[in-house]
């Protein structure tokens, strides 16, 4: 095949053209499917929204997990002793006896008697400022920090308190702790369910887009088949295309979600203060890595679903 049909090229020119092609083709990889054929910008936008929602759902799982852990750890290490009595003198005597018992008990790290004002302040939300002390005999409250060993068996301490101060009762916060744990678990399960739903939606979107891409590129797919392409080869081309589109969308969604979380954290801190009972919108340490897996999972799900859809569709053809 040494004859040149057009016959106008010199060997020097040919070698220059070849050298140029060789130079550029090292970096260039022309996709066999056209850029817009596989869904293009609309698919990227939808994946960005999916990724945004998935990151928020995953963030909710992590925030609830962290906050619930912090709350329950505090409740686990604290108990409250309440001393009731007919009058202030009886309550003060009971409180002194109870403090004495607590200080003598192994496993008690700290026992702090709240002042009458502090105890009254706890009732203010319900009774109004100053009303509690005016009309009620306010029980004494002792905040006690205990070791896990003592927290595991409070019955002996309960008995000794009952003997030393008949008006004393011990609250281990078990009911509140259990409710809080259950609420946290429910919240986490709900957030995880939302995350899985979003992933499912990403699968469905990817499936539709892959089918639409195949329909739009019917001629290209047919030519690829006729020159000897296997189904796997075509599916890999589509998968690569969807991975790139998915990755762009997923990263966009993740960055948007990070911005939304940062904004929410800022507003929450400004509105209610850093030591609020409400959860903090900050995720630190290894937990944060989970958020970075979300966009990766989103684009992997997108690409793999597209691959399976394409393989299934092609296998139904000749």
């Amino acid at each position: 095949m040494s004859e040149t049909v057009a016959g106008s090229e010199t060997p020097e020119r040919r070698s220059t053209v070849r050298a140029k092609r060789g130079l550029f083709s090292r970096w260039r990889r022309n996709p066999l499917l056209p850029e817009a054929g596989a869904g293009g910008a609309p698919l990227t936008a939808v994946i960005a929204v999916m990724s945004f929602l998935a990151v928020l759902a995953m963030a909710a799982v992590l925030i609830i997990h962290q906050s619930a852990g912090k709350w329950t750890a505090e409740l686990q290490s604290e108990i409250t002793v309440q001393i009731k009595g007919a009058d202030a003198a009886e309550i003060a005597a009971g409180a002194s006896a109870a403090i004495r018992v607590l200080n003598e008990t192994e496993g008690v790290e700290e026992a702090i008697l709240k002042s009458e004002e502090e105890s009254a302040a706890l009732l203010e939300p319900w009774l109004g400022k100053g009303n509690a002390q005016a009309f009620l005999t306010i029980p004494a409250l002792i905040d006690v920090k205990v070791t896990p060993a003592l927290r595991g068996d409070l019955a002996p301490l309960r008995e000794r308190l009952a003997v030393a101060a008949p008006g004393a009762s011990l609250d281990d916060h078990a009911t509140w702790h259990n409710r809080l744990a259950m609420a946290a678990q429910s919240g986490q399960a709900l957030a995880l369910f939302v995350f899985l739903l979003v992933m499912g939606a990403a699968c469905a979107v990817s499936m539709f887009a892959a089918r639409a891409g195949l329909a739009a590129n019917r001629e290209i797919i047919s030519v690829l088949h006729l020159v000897g392409a296997t189904d796997e080869f075509i599916a890999s081309e589509v998968q690569r295309r969807f991975f790139v589109l998915g990755f762009r969308g997923a990263i966009t969604g993740m960055l948007t979600a990070f911005a939304a979380l940062a904004g929410a954290a800022y507003l929450l801190e400004r509105g209610v203060g850093a030591d609020s009972f409400l959860p903090q919108f900050t995720i630190g340490g290894w937990s944060a890595l989970w958020l970075f897996t979300v966009p990766l999972a989103t684009c992997l799900v997108t690409a793999y679903t597209a691959r399976l859809t394409v393989l299934k569709t092609l296998r139904s053809q000749y």
């Binding site: 095949m1 049909v5 057009a6 090229e9 020119r13 040919r14 070849r18 092609r21 060789g22 083709s25």
Partner: peptide, 16 residues
């Protein structure tokens, strides 16, 4: 295949 493809395209007069 780079050489083969280039040669074929040259042969059919489409080297440019």
């Amino acid at each position: 295949y780079r050489e083969d493809v280039s040669e074929l395209l040259n042969w059919v007069g489409l080297g440019e």
